[in-house]
């Protein structure tokens, strides 16, 4: 007879859900879905240890738990705070949270170049989305931004540190994929930079995934750089038989050509099944893939904008007739 596992009730912005103990506030919010989900730039559910760094997911805990109803004194990072039974959380309904998030967006943008028109990540950039949804129109920063030279990390990956927001996702990815530490952070404070060990090449079979986990355009695919804007390409679900990974990927096509291959991301931009370098960089022929059909991208409005999947409302037709 297994004992019934006790579920915790948590209320976020007035919406309640029952979750298992140990779930984080962010994951509970994702279970509810919709507007109550705080944005997250550094948390990545499949990477152990990620989260807590970007501070965009800060929420206000207005009631600690049923047993101890005191509110938490500070805003907490929802990605790394576990829920308690009876916890009440304010996300968008809290002025403090909105204000703090505006601050974080401004902080993230002060050293980020605002060159989206020439950045490869534009259209699928989480920072772009974040700034659009939560930021303010104008920065008050009037000083020179920090800049770095572009670095080649091996044959396929380009690192442009200037755009990095130091979310540490790629560091965790590289650490958790390989036995040796090859990829990490040098220096500290706003001089900190992502680097391989003295610009050594990254040569793991799965290292291409650092491109997918990067929320901004700091790590980009050299086989795709500057070939096309992402919203001019057609994302197609496809699979192949691969002995290293499970072969489930997304092909981004221009006409009949495969422009690039990425792993499949969920609505929060997270990859659940990593793909290998072979699939990502070398299989650019249509014959190598079994195409399943067009992929719906829900999060990035820019990408889905050109796909004309929406039904044309009937009354417009009627109006035209009249």
């Amino acid at each position: 007879m297994s004992e019934q596992i006790q579920k915790f009730t948590i209320t976020i912005d007035g919406k309640s859900i029952q979750v298992d103990p140990g779930t984080t506030i962010l994951n509970a919010a994702r279970m509810i879905g919709g507007e109550v989900v705080p944005p997250a730039m550094c948390y990545y559910s499949s990477l152990k240890g990620s989260g807590g760094k970007c501070r965009t997911c800060l929420v206000e805990v207005s009631k600690g738990s049923e047993k101890d109803p005191r509110p938490m004194p500070k805003l907490v990072a929802s990605c790394s705070t576990s829920v308690m039974d009876g916890m009440e959380v304010k996300n968008k309904s809290s002025e403090k949270v909105i204000d703090a998030r505006k601050g974080v967006v401004e902080f993230l943008l002060i050293n980020h170049p605002l060159d989206c028109p020439v950045c490869d990540q534009a259209g699928e950039c989480h920072l772009q989305d974040l700034a659009f949804e939560h930021g303010v129109g104008q920065s008050r920063y009037e000083f020179e931004r920090r800049t770095f030279d572009k670095v080649d990390l091996g044959e396929y990956i380009k690192l442009h540190m200037t755009r990095c927001i130091l979310c540490y996702r790629c560091v965790y990815t590289a650490n958790q994929l390989t036995d040796n530490r090859e990829h990490g952070i040098l220096k500290r404070g706003d001089a900190a930079e992502i680097s391989t060990f003295i610009e050594k090449n990254l040569s793991n079979d799965f290292i291409g995934n650092v491109i997918d986990v990067c929320p901004v355009g700091a790590l980009t695919d050299k086989t795709f750089r500057f070939r096309s804007r992402v919203w001019y390409t057609k994302p197609m679900d496809a699979s192949c038989s691969c002995d290293k990974c499970n072969g489930n990927a997304v092909l981004w096509m221009i006409g009949d050509e495969i422009a690039r291959v990425t792993a499949r991301k969920d609505q929060y931009g997270e990859v659940k099944e990593f793909i290998c370098n072979d699939c990502r960089f070398n299989k650019k022929e249509k014959s190598q893939w079994n195409i399943e059909g067009p992929r719906k991208i829900s999060r990035h409005s820019v990408i889905s904008a050109n796909h004309y999947e929406r039904e044309i409302p009937k009354h417009t037709v009627l109006l035209n007739k009249a």
Partner: peptide, 21 residues
């Protein structure tokens, strides 16, 4: 504090440098 910030979380990493400037 700008010099000593570890650079892990954004408000401190970017904010300390901004304040200093």
């Amino acid at each position: 504090y700008h010099h000593e910030s570890c650079g892990q979380c954004s408000p401190c990493r970017e904010g300390t440098g901004w304040m200093e400037k």
